[in-house]
Design a protein around this nucleic acid. Structure first.
Lengths: 224, 224
DNA sequence: CGAATACTTCGATAGCCATCGAACTAATTG
DNA sequence: CAATTAGTTCGATGGCTATCGAAGTATTCG
């Protein structure tokens, strides 16, 4: 038996479930009720959907008191979702993105555990400009100068790299259609921004809200 | 409106359609009847499925006489399928791969327009060993020596590279769980192998069948 | 031309599954 | 302990869609 693609497809292929998955792209673990709200369905229905997503291996659960926190199973799954975003947005050519919510998402949002959106692609371009990243379209590496740059910023590369996860990896942005920074470094940049309180995760979406000062500081730090 | 992931999911999320998509991963354009056979359904049903896949942007059609040839819409879509393969095979942990057909697939098969399977991952490892490819786990570039190596083999890198497609790009192999060679160079290697008649595409599957002599010649050419 | 092949369109049918109301378990709070 | 909150299980319903038979169009072949 070849691996079963169809079951994965059908898991994503339901409006309610896909809304949940997208919500979880924010990287935060969400409770069943939050996800029910996100998907505009009753708690019962949500429960059955979530059971399927866990059974199907796309989500994992952590029980905590009377809450159950759901999360994407890992980078692999997040990659799949982003992949589908890219395809579907490359299809609807001139898709109409209107409304304030979408504007925020386009400006800056969270893609699993790193930043995405306009600001994130600007950052990536600037890092390439400064030759901190060597970009070969779909593959890229952090240069020695780049490593030094992040060390100076306070990133603990030894801790951050380790494991099997690539240090620096481009991730195609569905709204900008350019690369933004994923990988361990991408994750570090996001956590750094949040720790410095330059930006906060939006409560109900994947949007990442920068304060005026925070945005200024961010641009200064990375020379944008 | 955010791009619609669910429709893409549901397109893949049907047994018959997923079988068709997998068959098309062989890279060859197939006719409607061939795909109907592949999916074990009647011609009428296949026709409706194919219409949906085209409408949904996953496939493209070329009309030729009384035949209609279907193909994956591009590398992006092929990547999605491979992506799902990886997830689903990482789920069914110790999935049982038995039967001669699967053995052939594991040894050598076609992944859209390049080689995959055991032989392909061996090739990739060897190229990394010889420092023709600089591998940074999920990103990689062709070194100067590597470029020279392929030029010597007769690859026309200027023609082969061009465009926006990366020259050299790793692609995670679902049966081996290692990288194999994708990108323009990956494509060139496959077409070279076929042109030299060292191997032939299997008629009814994605398997790539090497002749004894062909396999020997291939291993010699790439020093395996 | 007539016959065969490739494919589509149009029903009708049947099975699957998303949905929610109702009733349950389980944890928390006061 | 009773009341509230979080989540599940069960059963009924309704809608969606994969399926194929039958009949249609288009193309090729002899």
């Amino acid at each position: 038996m070849e691996p079963n693609i169809a079951t994965i497809g059908s898991l994503v292929g339901d409006q309610a479930r896909s809304k949940m998955l997208i919500a979880l792209m924010g990287g935060k673990a969400l409770t069943a009720t939050e996800l029910a709200l996100e998907a505009d369905i009753s708690a019962q229905t949500a429960s059955s959907h979530l059971a399927k997503l866990v059974e199907g291996g796309l989500l994992v659960v952590r029980k905590q008191g009377r809450h159950r926190y759901f999360q994407l199973r890992g980078e692999e799954v997040a990659g799949l979702i982003e992949n589908m975003f890219n395809i579907s947005s490359s299809l609807s050519e001139e898709s109409v993105f209107t409304g304030p919510k979408d504007k925020n998402l386009r400006a800056s949002r969270i893609c699993y555990d790193h930043m995405a959106g306009k600001l994130a692609t600007q950052l990536y371009e600037s890092l390439v400009d400064k030759q901190f990243i060597k970009d070969n379209i779909s593959e890229s590496t952090l240069s020695e100068e780049g490593k030094q740059f992040f060390l100076d910023l306070g990133a603990d590369l030894s801790e951050v790299s380790g494991l099997k996860r690539p240090l620096c990896k481009p991730c195609l942005d569905w709204s900008e259609r350019k690369s933004h920074l994923a990988g361990s470094i991408g994750k570090w940049v996001l956590s750094d921004v949040i720790q410095r309180k330059w930006a906060a995760r939006d409560l109900n979406s994947r949007a990442l809200r920068f304060s005026d000062d925070g945005l200024k500081a961010f641009k200064k730090r990375y020379g944008l």
